[in-house]
Design a binder for these strands. Structure first.
Length: 509
RNA sequence: GUCCCCAUCGUCUAGAGGCCCAGGACUCCGGCUUUUCACGCCGGCAACAGGGGUUCAAAUCCCCUUGGGGACGCCA
């Protein structure tokens, strides 16, 4: 007799987190990783880390390194990944290009995809026209009817092209979300997505589906921003003749104003949380609470370790409304972990790790040495390296600036610069601040005093740029943001005007 | 604009038709404890977005409205 065995008991549970190394390690990545890790572990499966670096322009090795280190700091250890290897490697998409090209060719051969020669300009115009006509957005299918001979001729001429997937124009797609249930989306609202870019590298959509299949991923647990492209992914599985994985879309973490978590409104970088002195246990604990997958009884303990989280987490219970990331509650949890979650020895070790990290301490001591008369001077000279937010007084800041408007504008542009500077080093920082001084028609030496004050809490000290390099982007960003706020803040209109002035300044140079 | 997701205190949530004039936690406010502060303990404020159904009975099920969010890239 034949007994049907439910699919989930037949196959190994394999989950993954697939960050893109294009910036600071994001707290949202940790959130998604945590859920994936919990699901894999509680089912005796594997958790995979894959680097999605198909965007050659924006991906950096620096970012990848920071992401790996941050996730490891949190204790979100993966079974397979670019640094630990595994049977389904390589785990960096930039090293898998041939695989995607071959799969894309299959789609071309079976008529599920087509070459498209439309220029970026034409597509921009098309979008503009569609916007004006209030029509659905999307590719209009111009190249879909090209004959094989035409395609070959244009390819031979060396015309740049991309590969797009064919998408039905009618009917509807049903995305089965394992916790939300079925989501129906009409095919006509789904764009004929580019699969292979002009540089020969795949887009997220292709790479993601090919990798998830080849890596045996059973559950794709990702952010809800992917719901609208899920039909494309489902269609690709169908085109390839593959069984799709279980999909789960998690609600996005929010700013206090309910928009998607962003660094301008709430700290998002894991490096910030670490530097600010949050314990990895507390941050992970808080993220676990935010998933909604832990049901804590009335008056029950909320301080929960990662192993308890893995044990108690229930995927079906995750909340579907996006939770606001509340630093206040994180603080409370962090304090409790510090007070109650560590032995005296462990606490000492944490303090040492955080404050006495040898390389950093060496650099700080070196920086302060020439201004140190007695060792006791070190506290005043370098204390800000161990502080979070500094107490700022608007009048004190204005005292060392040339005018109220000037100093506020300087803080604003310094904030922007600190966000953009790459690489984060003395030279780039210096040149960014020189730009601001030139823009304001000020000598750098006039710009620096208020900057120094808001960034270090003092008016004098070692070179601002040495200090900044060591301080790191995250703390600098927070302090500048605070400075702007303390000085009264800037409205959107003013920002717009300033940006315009900045642009004309650039053009003049 | 179009499509999709979501909706209980300010915030995170409990609640799977009667146990709910809605419980817990963070925050805030009182009080107690205390050589200060913090911790701790005790207490308090505070929510079912609105309107229609279904039902003997709805925070819970259905529909509409409203509100919030996301997506609409040769970014992920």
């Amino acid at each position: 007799m034949w007994i049907e065995i439910p699919r989930e008991f037949m196959m190994t549970v394999r989950t993954r987190v697939a960050p893109s190394p294009t910036g600071d390690p994001h707290v949202g990545t940790a959130y998604i990783a945590l859920v994936n890790l919990a699901v894999a572990r509680q089912n005796g499966g594997q958790f995979v880390l894959r680097i999605e670096d198909t965007d050659q322009v924006r991906s950096t090795a620096e970012s990848e390194k920071a992401i790996l280190e941050s996730l490891r700091w949190l204790g979100l250890d993966w079974d397979e990944g670019p640094d630990v290897g595994g049977d389904h490697g390589p785990y960096r998409q930039s090293e898998r290009s041939a695989l995607y090209a071959a799969h894309c060719q299959k789609l071309l051969d079976t008529g599920h995809a087509f070459r498209c020669f439309c220029s970026a300009d034409r597509l921009a115009e098309l979008r503009e026209a569609q916007r004006k006509a209030k029509a659905d957005f999307g590719y209009d299918g111009r190249c879909i009817g090209l004959t094989p001979d035409e395609v070959k001729a244009r390819l031979d001429k060396g015309e740049p092209s991309v590969v797009r997937m064919k998408v039905p124009r009618e009917g509807r797609c049903v995305v089965q979300d394992a916790v939300r249930g079925p989501i129906e989306i009409e095919w006509r609202t789904v764009d004929m997505q580019v699969l292979l870019k002009a540089d020969g590298l795949p887009t997220y959509h292709l790479a993601n589906v090919v990798d998830d299949h080849l890596m045996g991923i059973s559950h794709v647990i990702r952010g809800e921003e992917w719901i609208s492209s899920a039909p494309k992914h489902l269609l690709l599985y169908e085109y390839f003749g593959w069984e799709p994985p279980q999909f789960v879309h998690l609600a996005l973490l929010r700013n206090p104003d309910k928009s998607k978590l962003s660094k301008r409104k709430n700290p998002t970088s894991l490096l910030w949380y670490r530097r600010m002195g949050y314990l990895s246990e507390a941050l992970l604990n808080y993220l676990a609470i935010l998933t909604g997958g832990l049901t804590i009884p009335d008056g029950g303990e909320e301080r929960i370790s990662i192993s308890e989280t893995i044990e108690q987490f229930v995927l079906n219970e995750v909340s579907q409304g996006g939770p606001i990331f509340d630093l206040g509650k994180l603080d409370w949890l962090n304090a409790r972990w510090i007070r109650e979650g560590l032995t005296d020895e462990a606490w000492l070790a944490r303090v040492q790790d955080w404050a006495l990290e040898p390389e950093r301490l060496k650099a700080i001591a070196r920086l302060a040495r020439s201004r140190t008369v007695k060792l006791t001077d070190l506290v005043g000279l370098t204390g800000h390296f161990f502080a979070g937010f500094l107490p700022l007084d608007a009048d004190e800041i204005r005292k060392v600036a040339s005018s109220d408007e000037q100093v506020l504008q300087a803080m604003h542009f310094a904030y922007e610069a600190v966000n953009a500077v790459s690489p984060w080093d003395r030279a780039s920082l210096l040149s960014a601040f020189e730009d601001i001084a030139r823009f304001q028609g000020l000598k750098l030496s006039k710009l620096i005093p208020p900057m120094f004050l808001v960034l270090t809490g003092r008016v004098t000290g070692p070179s601002l740029f040495d200090v900044l390099e060591l301080m790191g982007r995250d703390i600098a960003r927070s302090r500048l943001q605070m400075a702007v706020q303390v000085l009264g803040g800037v409205g959107k209109k003013v920002v717009k005007r300033w940006d315009k002035e900045w642009q004309t300044h650039l053009a003049r140079e």
